[in-house]
Computed example of a mutant assay.
Amino acid sequence: MTTIKSSYKGNLRTSATHVASTNTIITDAPVDNNGKGEAFSPTDLVCAALGSCMMTIMGIVANRCEINVEGMEIETKKIMAAEPRRISEVVLTFKMPANGYSDKDKAMLENAARTCPVALSLHPDIKQTITFLY
Rank of each mutant, 00 (worst) to 15 (best):
S15P: 09
K106Q: 07
I74G: 02
H18C: 05
N23I: 13
M55R: 02
H18N: 15
C116I: 01
L92I: 02
R13I: 10
E66Y: 02
L12T: 05
K127Y: 03
C47T: 13
I67G: 11
Y101H: 07
A81V: 02
H123K: 15
D28L: 02
R13P: 02
M96T: 06
L122H: 03
C47V: 14
E38W: 00
A49K: 10
E83C: 01
D103Q: 05
A39F: 07
M54G: 00
Y134W: 15
E75D: 13
S121F: 02
C47M: 06
A113Q: 00
H123R: 14
S88Q: 14
A119R: 01
K104V: 11
F132P: 02
T2Y: 11
Y101C: 05
R13L: 03
A39G: 12
S121Y: 00
M1Y: 01
M54R: 02
G51L: 06
I126S: 03
C53F: 06
P30I: 04
G51Y: 09
M55S: 09
N68V: 11
E73K: 14
I4C: 08
A48Y: 05
E83M: 00
I4W: 10
I25D: 02
A16C: 12
S21R: 07
P124T: 03
M54A: 05
A113P: 01
L50N: 10
V31F: 05
P97N: 11
T14L: 14
D103M: 04
A39C: 05
I130Q: 02
G10A: 05
M54K: 03
G37I: 09
V46N: 01
E110R: 00
T2G: 06
V19N: 10
A29E: 08
T24M: 11
D44N: 03
T24S: 13
K5P: 01
G71F: 10
A20N: 12
N11Y: 09
A16G: 14
H123P: 02
A81T: 05
V19L: 12
V118C: 03
T24D: 10
F94I: 09
E70T: 11
R64G: 12
I4A: 11
M80E: 03
N99K: 13
V61A: 10
I4Q: 10
I57F: 14
T131L: 08
L12H: 05
N23G: 07
F132N: 01
R85H: 03
I25Q: 04
E70Y: 02
M55L: 13
K95Y: 13
N23K: 15
G35M: 07
I126E: 03
P117F: 07
S21Q: 10
T27M: 09
E110V: 06
N23M: 15
L109H: 01
N68D: 15
N34S: 10
V90G: 03
K9V: 01
T2N: 13
T24Y: 08
T17P: 04
T93L: 04
Y134Q: 08
L120K: 15
N99L: 13
N11D: 15
P117K: 06
A48D: 02
R64F: 09
P97R: 04
I60W: 06
A29K: 10
L122K: 04
A16S: 15
R64A: 15
S102G: 07
S102M: 01
G37N: 12
L12E: 00
T17C: 12
P124E: 11
D44Y: 07
K5D: 14
P30A: 10
Q128M: 15
S6M: 14
L50G: 05
S41Y: 07
K127F: 01
T2M: 11
A81S: 13
I67W: 12
A48T: 14
F132Y: 13
